[in-house]
Design a binder for these strands. Sequence first.
DNA 1: CGCATTTGACCGGCGC
DNA 2: GCGCCGGTCAAATGCG
Length: 586
Amino acid sequence: MEVTLKRNVVVEEETKVGCVGDEESGEIGKFGGETPIYDRDSSRSSSSSQRDSINNREVPTVIGSERSFMDASSRPSSSKPKNSVTISQETQPESTKAERFDVKKPFMAQTVKDYQSPQMHFFDIVQKEHVKKPDETSSTLDNAEEPELVSLSLGTRASRSGKEEEANTYSKGKEDGMIKEGLTLGLHSKVDGSSSGPSEALLNLSPDNSFEEPKEADTGEPWPPSKMMKSSANGEDEVLPQPPLKRARVSVRARCDAPTMNDGCQWRKYGQKVAKGNPCPRAYYRCTVAPACPVRKQVQRCAEDMSILITTYEGNHNHPLPMGATAMASTTSAAASMLISGSSTSSCPPFGSLASSTANLHGFSQVDNSRFKQFYPPNPSIYSSASHPTITLDLTVPSSTPQYKFSSNLTYPKYSSTSLNFSSSKSNTIPTSWSGGSSTYGAHFYDKNSMGSLNLGGQTQDSFNLSYMHKGTSQNPAPSQHLLTETVANAITSHPSFQSALATAITSYLGAQGAERAGEGSPAGQVGLKWSEQLALAPTYTSAFTSPSNYSSHHQGSSTFLQPPPALLSAKSASASPVGNGEQKS
DNA sequence: CGCATTTGACCGGCGC
DNA sequence: GCGCCGGTCAAATGCG
């Protein structure tokens, strides 16, 4: 939470990637002068210190420190169902928070407004589509909608039941809020399709889960392959006996002094361990915004560069996200969707035809490998564990102004990993490029939706992967980085998922900086806000990506659309199925 | 007193 | 089958 994504965001896969470390947890604390996250004693003290730091520093941040959320919003322990998440909540800030948010409140309020309208619009569109194409959109979608939004079940099989239960549980708790959630869920389910339904699409990193998880609701949780296999077997899914994928992960590298990045969600630390590849201890957090939220995150310092904090997200939120959390969630979800669609898709039928997915993978992987390795040398260890497809978002930016270049590097054996590198050399200022892309994309997005085809993913991906990636790879096996960059940039631009990911990343990034600066009193914060606003301005795009946490669920839904949920929509649209996992959606 | 964090133990997957 | 390793659990601890 720290919020301070100061500059760079580097994406990496697992923490393993870059870190070499030397230090131990205690040392980590050194960073930032902050409390060492890992260090026990220090941590405690640190915890307090962290808290303080968070509170104090982060204040500027939109959402607030984790802790603040914890306190403010429902705690898991309390298990009280949250009430519907309403915008007001977003603002959540309690009295304490209020202080923090003073500056931002106005912005937030406005932002919320901005989002609402678009979202509403979005929902309408979605509903229309469903109505129009009941058949095509998987049955699941229909299901979801029909009853109440609540039913996430969608096409997914058994897992669904379990998931639904959780979802229900969760929703039950909130009865009041239920409706919204229901919507949210419904959307997700629709969108996601397969996915785990309940959870928000945003974080739905793992397609797999979505299908498989029988029990828990959460999709987020990791399923052992065996389980997955079983479930699949039961199910019908198109899921072939593919090797079970574990949930996709999205790792974000950012420079931060704080022990953890302030992503707007509430997290509770449940474990810490030293991973083999990195001396720096890895901290395990689980989302406490909702009691049953399956989302987990791993935080680890990069040994090489202690200032770099690698945060890996896994799972989908099954609850509305706080405003602050939206950006990150969107980013991660988008990245995940990309990953899924691009690479791991195969595992997830919903995402697209296997063939397409496979093609994507290959293309993607190739590209990455050949070209992007440059950016990120493949680290064998990284992928080794690879049961988890991982996308890395690199937020480390050398210059104060975030530049973005995308490099996707995939080395990937089983799973491709994609990294979005904002730090790269060529840079377009985010705003410029982004804005252009976003707007364009947004238009695109809606169009498609309006058109009724949800399969952004299918076509998009194909086009994206095949066209861009392939071109790059095949045609230009060894293009200069520059070419690569351009190619990638183009691809990204065209690809919704990338865009969304980029947008969110940028947004979050700016927001973070802005927050910091704001805290500092510098105008920069405003800039960040403005930036967000700009994004918001584009109704389509905005709604999808920047929507406030409250809308997160909605947001997800929207995002889902944005991202291509593949096959479901397109290829499989005919079939009922799939579940769509819409998860991915960004 | 309540709660979050810490941390050792435990579990399951994977490779040899 | 064994060991390694990642990830999670849960009792203990300490803070507010």
